[in-house]
């Protein structure tokens, strides 16, 4: 079962941290369809956050079709986020690896690569879409 970790200094809303950590676990395959998410009581007993926040995060995940509540039983994972595109042996990953290798040869250090990557990411994926939807 997934265990949440809340960072109160991150500036990221608590429920969003729960959503992101759940998705991360789905991507990495730590959570599989059919797995039960911890109950609100289990989460707050470990993290001392507001149970309404847990419910809000679960509602958000439900809205995205990732989980489903089964009354009296708990909240269960419906589908995985692990996709062929992010797997370790995918062609996309291979291409990115090759690109990074060229950058290394060109003398770019880690920060240069990160800045470059983020600049392209920001133009391709407009800010405010995807995982970082507010409210």
């Amino acid at each position: 079962m997934i265990e949440f970790r809340i960072d109160r200094r991150s500036g990221v809303a608590t429920y969003l941290q729960l959503v992101q950590q759940t998705k991360q676990a789905l991507r990495l395959g730590l959570l599989q369809p059919g797995d039960r998410l911890p109950t609100a009581k289990e989460v707050v007993a470990a993290t001392a956050i507001n149970p309404n926040t847990v419910l809000k995060a679960y509602r958000e995940l439900e809205r995205e079709g990732l989980v489903e509540p089964r009354p009296g039983l708990g909240t269960f994972v419906r589908r995985s986020l692990a996709s062929a595109g992010t797997a370790e042996d995918s062609p996309l990953r291979g291409e990115l690896d090759a690109w990074m290798s060229r950058a290394q040869t060109a003398g770019l250090d880690r920060e240069d690569v990160e800045a470059l990557f983020k600049a392209v990411l920001d133009t391709r994926y407009r800010l405010g879409t995807g995982d970082h939807t507010e409210g």
């Binding site: 109160r8 608590t14 609100a40 009581k41 707050v44 993290t47 001392a48 956050i49 149970p51 926040t53």
Partner: peptide, 24 residues
Amino acid sequence: MAEVAETGMTVLLSSHVLAELDGV
């Protein structure tokens, strides 16, 4: 918070340390 999750009771919590209350 676990008791809130279980009972659904309303809580009023006073503090002058805000960091304690964030997320709660």
